[in-house]
Design a protein around this nucleic acid. Structure first.
Lengths: 125, 125
DNA sequence: TCTTGACATAGAGTTTACTCTACATTGTAT
DNA sequence: ATACAATGTAGAGTAAACTCTATGTCAAGA
């Protein structure tokens, strides 16, 4: 299947302007029809979903662009791309670990508040 | 103990400019000495550490500012502050869950690459 | 044929969170 | 007394990632 940009926008949840911006930044290169309109494919859809994943895990656009370039080059870049993903997984692990630590501290703080509120209530009896 | 901004910057890892910016944005209000220099206290240090935690877990400056205002008001705002933290913990839980899902998919992708690289190697024998 | 809606490009504007510059003041060591 | 390093304010500049505006094209329905 092929989709014009409006439909692809709905499929991806990404806003027409954002899709054009991504193309300009070299993240994606949809086909064009005879009237120069963008024709996004199902492959583009899979690819955009992966881009979103990279973004949501904190990879900056420039780095995704680099990955996209390697991808466009094909097989000779397979190991370099894998290397990037392995690095990124490492970063993601650390990110998750840090958030979990933050969560523990946040829970403690909430517990502290619970006690404070209790204490203040009792003081005002 | 009290610290001038340069020292406090080192203690917090936050850059002098950033500390002044945070003050301007209403996140922190250090004392001033007779010559108008900022005198950060240990309480400020604890508070900044908490600000960093909120920031690192994705809370925007504006919301932290709101929390800071409630904090400055004192006891009457205890439950509202706790409410904010409970909400934020919820968001954090979701954030962590999402990252964990992303990690699983990323691992799958890496596994896919491992197989692809193997396949390409064998094809070129 | 005329209008309308989706699409095209180029470039300007926005938001967030800093980060830096210019210039004045002050405390301290020589 | 003077030099200098740290600090002060006000305001400009930066980077990332969008987001919007102006203007033009084009295919399809009334």
């Amino acid at each position: 299947m092929e989709y014009p940009i409006g439909e692809f926008s709905k499929l991806t949840g990404l806003g027409i302007h954002t899709l054009r911006y991504y193309e300009q930044e070299g993240l994606i290169a949809p086909e064009r029809n005879s009237s120069n309109r963008r024709c996004y494919s199902d492959k583009d859809l899979t690819w955009i979903e992966f881009i979103k994943r990279l973004k949501d895990t904190g990879m900056p656009i420039k780095e995704i662009k680099h990955y996209a370039e390697l991808r466009a080059t094909g097989d000779p870049t397979l190991s370099e791309r894998m290397e990037m993903l392995v690095q990124h997984r490492q970063a993601l692990d650390e990110q998750i670990a840090q958030l979990q630590e933050h969560k523990i501290k946040l829970d403690e703080k909430i517990e502290f508040y619970r006690n404070e509120i209790e204490r203040v209530n009792n003081t005002n009896l």
